[in-house]
């Protein structure tokens, strides 16, 4: 007999009442029982951080938590970051600074950084580097990710907290259709070295 339990879980503001098998991790529940497939599994032992989500506002590894433990909890996932088809400042910064390539680790980094920026409105580069060391990326070499988090912090960490209300006001926001044609400043190494 499967050991199952009814849970009530709020994901990005939407309440779900479902029956879950106790051995399904929160990541399994989000991805396969509820269809929030933006949360990815990269190791299932808490090292890579691809599955990072916010649980009651704090970043956690959703592979190291059973779904049944999230009963009566609020979960935030990558799907909840944009609103009205607009990227929030953190998402914008990831694109502008080339903080993603294959995109698999990206949701984990976004949620990690979202939680981090809520606690640290004005972090130093060193603080960002250390916080972001929680997650693994195989494509970028991390530089774009660190620059993106610092940039988003500079544009107001608070805004990432309530992306829904405030992103629309952000000058940097662009909708999806525009994003292809936007030319951005390249982070040229030459420039950095000359500074």
């Amino acid at each position: 007999m499967k050991d199952t339990h009814p849970i009530e879980i709020t994901v990005n503001g939407r309440v779900h009442e479902i029956e879950v098998e106790s051995r399904r991790t929160l990541a399994d529940v989000l991805r396969h029982d509820l269809g929030y497939t933006g949360t990815h599994l990269g190791c299932e032992h808490g090292i890579c951080g691809a599955c990072t989500v916010l649980l009651d506002g704090l970043p956690v590894r959703s592979c190291l938590l059973f779904g049944v433990q999230a009963d009566e909890c609020e979960v935030e996932t990558v799907e909840g970051l944009e609103s009205d088809g607009r990227l929030n400042p953190l998402q914008e910064a990831f694109s502008a600074h080339h903080g993603l390539q294959c995109g698999f680790c990206t949701p984990g980094f976004l949620m990690l950084a979202t939680g981090f920026l809520r606690e640290n409105l004005d972090p130093t580069e060193e603080e960002v580097r250390e916080a972001v060391s929680s997650n693994l990326c195989r494509c970028t070499g991390y530089q774009g990710i660190i620059e993106a988090v610092l940039d988003a912090a500079g544009k107001g960490g608070e805004r990432t907290e309530t992306a829904a209300d405030e992103t629309a006001a952000s000058e940097t926001s662009r909708n999806q259709e525009e994003s292809v044609s936007v030319e951005d400043v390249s982070l040229s190494g030459a420039g950095e070295a000359n500074q």
């Binding site: 808490g46 990072t52 649980l55 704090l58 590894r61 938590l65 990690l112 060391s133 929680s134």
Partner: peptide, 9 residues
């Protein structure tokens, strides 16, 4: 102690 998200839980 581990990493930031490990320390939260």
């Amino acid at each position: 102690v581990g990493h930031y998200p490990i320390r939260t839980l």
